[in-house]
Design a protein around this nucleic acid. Structure first.
Length: 427
RNA sequence: GUGAGCGUAGCCUAGUGGUUAAGGCGCCAGGUUGUGGCCCUGGAGAUCGUGGGUUCAACUCCCACCGUUCACCCCA
């Protein structure tokens, strides 16, 4: 017996309402901000990720699906979408468009991790990227967009965490100060942090070990070491957020895992917080496009995990619209009626009416039962009598009424009755 | 990769060493002559995650593997 591979799931019809809703909302919010959709391949040249997501990070070394194709090329399933979008930006000369270029994507993303709540080996990300403009207005724009999206789903109790990690100029100076701070505690530091001190000092601030947390508590804040340009940028981001009335909390230990980030970094946390709680992560990455062979190009964006978004929709008990199913069921008995049923179904569908016709393998009673469980509004009944007379019985399932009409009149009768059917509830 | 909990029909659950593994939901079929929802009756559906082991006897105890859940790591 085959099963879906570990960390993957089938999205069955019963779940589709959530996905359709979330994707429609995302597209709608992006339209409001002028972000256009881009779809990049599910896999890329391995080097694209290895170079940009920082060699030495777990993401690249342990969590990526890496494989060789038959031609011997080393490829990787995309573990995130920012680098691919930047690759497309450079490859297709999108820098020739009016800047900034605003893009969004929705699609599967792959990470070889141990599955957990809100974490899957194949999950789906929705993200936005604004490329080609360094203005702090854009940093705020993407944060606002993300918040608006989540709020449009009805989610409440969201919080924004914000920090700046500086740029190529000022970050190294801070890192030096941070190293010096840690030198006094080298005996107390955990083994992971010993490695971090050398390879990725900023991530020292992220350590959850209690001993390390104490050291972090007294560590210098990067915000105090930013260069004048980064300081201005950070200040403007905060000011703009305030102007828009978006609450946020500064968090000097927020540094993010991917190495390409510069200046602004942020996360959005939901009401209920578990270990995998962050639903949105993002920031500015002014050096990335240059790293993959483009001209120096500032950019900012975010990504969010849709599984986590849906998890929160369910936890908060929010309604999602249920796409309408067929509104008419055709029950029939006898061979002549079967033919009539099939052509009638065709004519109704031509008129835009959703129809489910019985296959005729069930008893008449069972057909009615099926019509009922499907929740159709009307059932058309065809037997020998109706076929002979060119009529059909139309039964209104909810009102428990039925009448006999000519088949031609029936079409119009139903088309009118079925036209509007607002429908919204939890599936 | 590390640690812990859990795996009984499609779903939820009972059964904790001993005759044909029980119930609910769902599914299928009936409850007379062409009419659903409620109700009643019946039926199908489980090698009790897989493979070893202990025992006269294992769904029940032990081990391994697989899956799953939660946490660590990492990250959306």
């Amino acid at each position: 017996m085959y099963r879906a591979p570990r960390g993957t799931t089938d999205i069955l019809p019963a779940e589709q309402a959530y996905w359709a809703h979330v994707q429609q909302r995302a597209a709608e919010v992006c339209r409001l901000y002028g972000y256009e959709r881009i779809d990049t391949p599910a896999f890329e040249d391995y080097g694209l990720f290895a170079r940009t997501d920082a060699e030495g990070t777990d993401l690249v070394e342990k969590e990526m699906y890496v494989f060789e194709d038959r031609g011997g090329q080393k490829l990787a399933l995309r573990a995130e979408n920012t680098a691919p979008v930047c690759r497309a930006y450079v490859e297709h000369g999108l820098f020739n468009l009016s800047q900034p270029v605003r893009l969004y994507y929705i699609g599967p993303t792959f990470r070889y991790e141990r599955p957990q709540a809100g974490r899957f080996r194949q999950h789906h990300q929705f993200g936005c990227e604004a490329l080609g403009d360094a203005s702090p207005i854009l940093d705020v724009e993407v944060i606002e967009l993300a918040i608006r999206f989540l709020e449009s789903l009805g989610l409440t109790g969201l919080s924004v965490l914000l920090n700046s990690i500086g740029c190529r100029q000022c970050q190294p100076a801070y890192v030096e100060v941070l190293r010096q701070h840690y030198q006094g505690f080298s005996a107390d530091v955990c083994s992971d942090c010993r490695v971090r001190m050398v390879r990725n000092p900023l991530r020292l601030l992220d350590c959850k070990e209690s001993a390390c947390k104490r050291i972090v508590a007294t560590a210098p804040h990067i915000a105090d070491y930013l260069c004048p340009e980064c300081k201005d940028h950070f200040r403007e981001v905060q000011e703009q957020l305030q102007v828009l009335g978006i609450p946020f909390a500064l968090n000097h230990t927020l540094v993010r895992g991917l190495d390409y980030y510069t200046r602004t970094v942020f996360e959005i946390l939901p009401q209920r917080q578990g270990s995998q709680s962050a639903i949105v992560g993002g920031g500015r990455y002014d050096g990335l496009i240059e790293q993959i062979g483009g001209k120096p190009t500032p950019a900012v964006g975010f990504a969010m995990g849709l599984e986590r978004v849906i998890l929160n929709i369910k936890e908060q008990g929010l309604d999602v619209p249920i796409p309408p199913g067929p509104r008419v069921y055709i029950a029939h008995v006898g061979t002549p009626a079967r033919q009539t049923a099939i052509s009638l179904a065709r004519r109704l569908r031509d008129a835009g009416v959703g129809v489910l016709a019985s296959t005729g393998t069930k008893s008449f009673k069972a057909q009615l039962r099926q019509a009922n469980s499907l929740g159709v509004r009307h059932t058309i009944i065809l037997g020998d009598n109706e076929v002979e007379a060119g009529t059909a019985v139309v039964r209104d399932m909810a009102r428990n009424e039925q009448s006999t009409l000519l088949q031609d009149a029936l079409l119009e009768h139903l088309a009118r009755a079925v036209e509007y059917s607002p429908d919204s509830a939890s599936p």
